[in-house]
């Protein structure tokens, strides 16, 4: 305490006479000291693994876990990964994209209703959105497995009304995987959207209506642009984990619905081809970061980055 007081008086005196920079720079350093735990955490659990992953992707593929890998800067691992798994990469982004779009159309009306129409049920509805998180991701996806099962209620009903042919099934199809992805990441779309919508001053909508905008135009010109930060955040929070997901494909699909997550999973844990798995991981990371940057620039929501 006394040191701080001394520092203050020194600093004050310093401005009057000759500058004495030492106390000020010591106070500036305090901020950096406070950053240290977080920086250490990031270094150990993010920077080191990332560097290790990139290094692994450049190892010689002829090595093995038992005898070790040799660092040969095998850049060729990347083209090998792309040619071998182009389908899975494409499928991942397609599934994640469809799931994200579906989530937008499901989440926007829901978030809008919670923000503006729910009245005293607002908090209850928010709790219901979050409630699925009380059980594990795996269990919830397994539940979808039984919902979409061949002898289940949904398939039965769809067959009765003729939407699904007699030998049709939902499980083990792209529909099931996309449905699972949409369901699992829906809350990540709802919550940021709700946060954005809830902040909108309804008088702005009234002002738009006063200025010759009908209900739809007022939404398009005022509510929607003002909810854009939430929409962008929700899209990122849905699309990014969905493109790397492998549980939904595993539990609701077949190898025909394999996503890049399944490829990485199999290469790391079954085939034990670490360089290939790492090359796929790095490619996925770079691809997502590129897409996100492009998307955020285009949507004008740079403040999110």
């Amino acid at each position: 305490m006394s040191a701080v007081v001394g520092g203050l008086t020194d600093a004050a005196r310093g401005t009057a006479t000759t500058p004495t920079p030492t106390p000020i720079s010591r106070r500036k350093l305090t901020g950096y000291f406070l950053l240290l735990p977080a920086l250490a955490w990031l270094a150990i659990f993010f920077a080191v693994p990332s560097v290790q992953l990139m290094a692994t992707s450049l190892y010689d593929r002829s090595g093995s876990l038992e005898y070790g890998y040799e660092m040969t800067f095998a850049v060729g691992n990347y083209p090998a990964a792309w040619t071998a798994y182009a389908t899975q990469f494409g499928r991942s982004f397609m599934y994640a994209g469809i799931a994200t779009v579906l989530a937008i159309f499901l989440a926007y009306p829901l978030a809008y209703a919670i923000a503006f129409r729910a009245g005293r049920f607002k908090h209850l509805m928010l709790v219901l959105v979050i409630a699925p998180f009380f059980t594990s991701f795996l269990v919830r996806t397994l539940a979808w497995n039984s919902i979409l099962a061949d002898n289940g209620f949904v398939v039965g009903s769809l067959k009765t009304i003729g939407i699904l042919p007699e030998d049709g099934r939902l499980l083990a199809s792209s529909v099931a995987v996309v449905a699972g992805l949409t369901y699992n990441f829906l809350p990540f779309m709802v919550l940021p959207l709700y946060a954005s919508l809830e902040k909108i001053d309804l008088r702005l909508v009234e002002a738009a209506r006063d200025l010759y905008a009908n209900g739809f135009t007022a939404f398009r010109k005022v509510t929607l642009p003002l909810s854009l930060p939430g929409l962008v955040a929700g899209t990122l929070l849905t699309f990014i984990p969905a493109s790397g997901d492998y549980i939904n494909s595993q539990l609701l699909g077949t190898p025909k619905q394999a996503m890049i997550g399944n490829v990485i999973d199999r290469n790391f844990l079954v085939i034990l081809d670490y360089p290939m798995a790492a090359a796929c991981s790095v490619t996925l990371m770079v691809a997502i970061v590129t897409m996100v940057l492009f998307y955020v620039r285009r949507s004008g929501a740079e403040e999110l980055l």
């Binding site: 008088r203 702005l204 009234e206 002002a207 738009a208 209506r209 006063d210 200025l211 009908n214 003002l226």
Partner: peptide
Amino acid sequence: LKPYKRPVNTVFQNYALFPH
């Protein structure tokens, strides 16, 4: 009449300018 069909405009309390 709906508000957007009236030849009437309002200066709102706290202005309600469109922030975006």
